[in-house]
Design a binder for these strands. Structure first.
Length: 883
RNA sequence: GCGAGAGUGGCGGAACUGGCAGACGCGCUGGACUUAGGAUCCAGUGGGGCAACCCGUGGGGGUUCAACUCCCCCCUCUCGCACCA
């Protein structure tokens, strides 16, 4: 990486005499600036809807304006740009927009650290990053750019929120949340690291707060069903993750009457077939009945102490599997509705209030958690399912039997297979009115309230008289005031701003108070793709005409880290917007490509932890820490990150080699969905290839000048024929790799193969037909390479004398007839081992191939003159002689 | 524990429905041109063997004329979920 050779003059230049503005040397910065300017001036990437033209909506996940583009962005957007330019050449009307996910915490952190307003910081970053993206030459329609932190956009977040509120899908509820007492705010789960606030390291507690929720669970079934329909277009693992997250289970709710008190406790189980084995019950500590039940019993003090203690344990600690199961008896009993036995009611830490009903029936013989708990507190164990083989010993068993079997000790259901018993007992419960079969989801409603400043204000008003009142539509947007500064510790200034807070109640006109929480930023990214189709529309969030033409997104590209959150939220949001009549379909993304991470080797010193490469010195062939001299561990390839000190700044690479080199590297070393390992040497290799390609074309400008690309018949055997065939083979391979498999790395290697073959044809002394074939091969290589490295290709295309830009050049088609070979290589195997290779006319019969094979001395040597017992012939490929 | 994916030269990775394993590139070796080469070009490059040949896709079995590819068992790694009743 040191030295300046990429900028060296090419001293052995074939044609050093040419001077003036048009140098014969590959000068990436000059040509990149030139073509970026031309594209921009001609507005070639600005598109509009054309109902008669086929559309293709290509979208990459928009960036958070963090300050600088990183290599992950470059990879993501380079993949997208190939697809966009490729589809455009295929004749599609391609929408390829870019914008900014501009609300969020980092802006507030910057405000605290740098004393700059979040809005100022955000827009400065946007300006800087937009410039970076432009220098990379992506084919965006910049006329559609927007940032989500503008009122023109977030107005419609508020509008949709009110629509949800009208339909009961936005509601306020008390719930436990992660709370940082020092920052005075709710934290998302991702912002809690090992129980500490990621920013101030204060211990995060659980706090019960009134929060706004969106009822994503109302769409649980459709979200799940969609996972099946998206199969094929989406990576399977993303769909699996979403299905697991939704977590549908079939079971039953059963009411257990209290023995001494009125009322009953409702539980949820998936194993109603084990109901006869329920020997105790357990409530979550937060269960509303937990405190009630123990009141007045001898257990009261103990239970209250336990509940109090559990409330102080952070959720993630309590939910960890390693946490010891712990509980107390409430002093109350319930009746098992099937056995009519009295069973004790406990409160324990391993039961979660959020799942099911927050209460369980414990069947220790057939559930490991229940068994662990039963053994610890000496509670009874009763086997009600016996396996096919062997007999369970309920007195001594330590491993619960959770599989299928035959019912025992289960009254009228004895002898029934457990799967059948689930149905039968479920039905019986319904007949008796003590329970019902039901479906349960793991998915929880989406809490969107944030005690933050830099976000969309939630459009609600609290009136002492009228209660919670929505802001009337005509008063939208509720503007986030920009003349406020964050309070100490990053606290939101909204609750302290009289001007913002005080508002007339829309119903009674008396003074009321605005909601001061803002929305989770995932709201912003839940529908931005729709807004790109009509970024300036003012009559609603979406222009039906534009949306009708462009949506859904045909190809979405982004990181796997959004597999659940963003991709689930936006599916939900789209389904809701569809129900409002804003979309025709509920699924926003037809095809999804999740690209891998960009990784690089890290350097780790046992003393000083992660080191920058320049903090490492080579000594005795071993890397050592410059600070302390300790040997440094290298060779571990990890995701590029500041903390690992292994990031490569795209700007540095662009300024050294140009955008085309960075793009080519990011696309050629790995298939898009896999991780990409950064390699300085391979970047160098890409730069060398572009130089070689440049020189190759420039050196052949003379011989191909005024020559038409070849369009005739397949010439006879010879270099021209080979090159023509190679050209068509490359078109076929590259087209299929991009279109069907997204394997851009193998597409690139196919182009490199073609370039190598062009180079093999000595350009001097060619006949006119060969020059024509050469011209075709060169043009084809340029066109195929164009989506990957557009600048160099446009420049060479122009130098070839082409009047048009490659932007709208039709993607080439291959001719199968050109791929036909007169002669083929047939492999001859003897007993499955390759022994000879024969050159034979294509389509030779088995008889013909066999004769040729038997005449081959190497084959004869291995057959020893014997005739084969069996002959396997794969036409034009292989002949296997089995002796 | 459950779920998903992966394991191929010195390295990144090819081989799409079983049919010449290692495409393409990086690195390396030798050579040419050079005052010079970290530029460019040419040749070579899975391992072993002088050779004929033999051995090679995490390990072990199997199916098949033929297995990186299909089946069974095992090992390792990565990711996701994880006390979900």
């Amino acid at each position: 990486m040191q030295g300046d050779h990429p900028n060296n003059a090419r001293k052995n230049d074939q044609n050093p005499k040419q001077i003036g503005p048009r140098s014969n040397r590959y000068e990436p910065h000059q040509i990149e600036a030139k073509w970026q300017r031309r594209w921009e001036e001609a507005r070639v990437f600005e598109v509009s809807s054309h109902p008669s033209r086929p559309k293709f909506y290509l979208l990459e996940m928009f960036p958070y304006p963090s300050g600088r583009i990183h290599m992950g962005h470059v990879r993501n957007y380079s993949i997208g740009d190939v697809m966009a330019r490729f589809r455009r050449m295929q004749g599609f009307n391609v929408l390829h927009p870019m914008g900014w996910d501009a609300f969020g915490l980092p802006a507030e952190n910057a405000a605290i650290d740098q004393k700059v307003h979040p809005a100022v910081w955000t827009f400065q970053n946007i300006d800087f990053m937009r410039n970076q993206l432009k220098k990379l030459g992506y084919s965006y329609d910049w006329s559609r750019e927007f940032a989500t932190c503008t009122p023109e956009y977030y107005k419609w977040n508020q509008w949709v929120f009110l629509k949800m509120y009208e339909r009961g899908l936005a509601f306020r509820k008390k719930s436990f949340v992660n709370w940082c007492p020092s920052c005075q705010t709710v934290l998302a789960n991702e912002q809690v690291e090992a129980g500490l606030c990621w920013r101030c390291n204060a211990e995060v507690t659980q706090k019960e707060l009134e929060q706004w929720f969106l009822k994503i669970t109302a769409y649980a079934e459709e979200l799940l069903k969609g996972c099946e329909e998206l199969a094929g277009g989406w990576p399977e693992r993303v769909l699996t993750m979403q299905s697991n997250w939704i977590g549908k289970s079939h079971g039953a709710e059963v009411d257990f009457p209290l023995a001494e008190l009125h009322g009953c406790i409702r539980i949820y189980t998936t194993r109603q077939d084990t109901l006869y084995g329920a020997t105790f019950m357990v409530l979550a500590p937060e269960h509303p009945m937990a405190k009630e039940l123990c009141r007045g019993t001898l257990q009261e003090a103990k239970v209250m102490e336990f509940i109090e203690r559990q409330s102080r344990v952070e959720k993630f600690v309590r939910e960890a599997e390693s946490t010891e199961k712990e509980g107390v008896f409430t002093g109350q009993w319930a009746i098992n509705p099937l056995t009519r036995e009295r069973i004790p009611i406990w409160v324990a830490n391993f039961v979660l209030m959020e799942y099911g009903t927050g209460a369980i029936m414990a069947v220790p013989a057939h559930d490991q958690r229940d068994l662990d708990f039963a053994r610890k507190y000496s509670l009874p164990v009763r086997v009600v399912i016996q396996p096919q083989e062997g007999t369970l010993d309920q007195e001594n068993m330590t491993v619960a039997y959770t599989q299928e079997g035959t019912l025992v000790q289960s009254g009228p259901f004895d002898g029934m297979p457990s799967s059948k018993a689930r149905e039968a007992i479920g039905q019986y419960l319904e007949e008796q009115g003590i329970g019902r079969r039901t479906v349960n989801y793991r998915l929880r409603d989406w809490g969107i309230s944030r005690q933050r400043y830099w976000g969309t204000p939630i459009p609600m008003i609290y009136c002492q008289r009228c209660g919670t009142v929505p802001v009337p539509y005509e008063q939208l947007p509720v503007i986030l005031p920009l003349d406020l500064d964050l309070l100490e510790g990053g606290r939101s200034p909204l609750p302290a701003s009289e001007e913002f807070l005080k508002v007339a109640c829309p119903e009674c006109g008396r003074q009321a108070r605005r909601e001061t929480d803002t929305m989770d930023t995932f709201v912003d990214s839940s529908w931005y793709f729709g807004r790109y189709t009509c970024p300036h529309y003012t009559q609603g969030p979406l222009d039906p005409q534009e949306v009708g033409y462009w949506m859904p997104v045909d190809q979405y590209i982004g990181g796997i880290e959004h597999a659940i959150l963003h991709l689930l939220y936006s599916r939900f949001w789209t389904m809701f917007m569809r129900d409002l009549g804003l979309y025709r379909e509920g699924e926003p993304y037809r095809r999804l490509l999740t690209q891998g991470m960009v990784c690089k080797e890290s350097h780790y010193c046992p003393e000083h932890e992660y080191l920058f490469p320049e903090e490492v010195e080579e000594r005795d062939g071993m890397p050592h820490c410059l600070k302390c001299g300790s040997p440094v561990r290298v060779g571990r390839v990890e995701k590029m990150s500041k903390s690992k000190k292994n990031v490569v700044d795209p700007d540095r690479i662009v300024s050294r080699y140009g955008a085309d080199t960075v793009r080519l590297f990011c696309l050629s070393d790995s298939p898009p969905e896999k991780d990409l390992e950064w390699s300085d040497q391979n970047v160098e290799g890409c730069y060398r290839f572009l130089n070689r390609f440049w020189n190759l074309v420039c050196d052949r400008l003379e011989v191909t000048k005024d020559v038409e690309p070849y369009r005739g018949e397949l010439p006879p055997e010879g270099p021209a024929r080979s090159l023509l065939q190679a050209t068509h083979a490359a078109i076929k391979k590259v087209t299929e790799e991009i279109e069907e498999r997204y394997h851009l790395n193998t597409a690139i290697s196919a182009i490199r193969t073609l370039v190598n073959q062009i180079q093999e044809l000595e350009p001097q002394g060619l006949d006119s037909r060969s020059r024509s074939v050469l011209r075709l091969a060169m043009e084809t290589a340029l066109v195929l390479l164009y989506p990957f490295v557009p600048h160099i290709c446009e420049e060479l295309w122009e130098r070839l004398g082409q009047p048009d830009s490659l932007v709208d050049h039709p993607w080439p088609k291959w001719d199968e007839a050109m791929l036909l070979r007169e002669e083929v290589q047939v492999v001859v195997q003897v007993n499955g081992k390759v022994r000879a290779q024969l050159t034979l006319p294509a389509g030779a019969s088995q008889q013909r191939v066999l004769e040729a094979a038997m005449a081959d001395p190497r084959v004869q040597k291995h057959t020893g003159g014997r005739s084969p017992r069996k002959v396997v012939h794969v036409p034009d490929r292989l002949l296997n002689l089995v002796l």
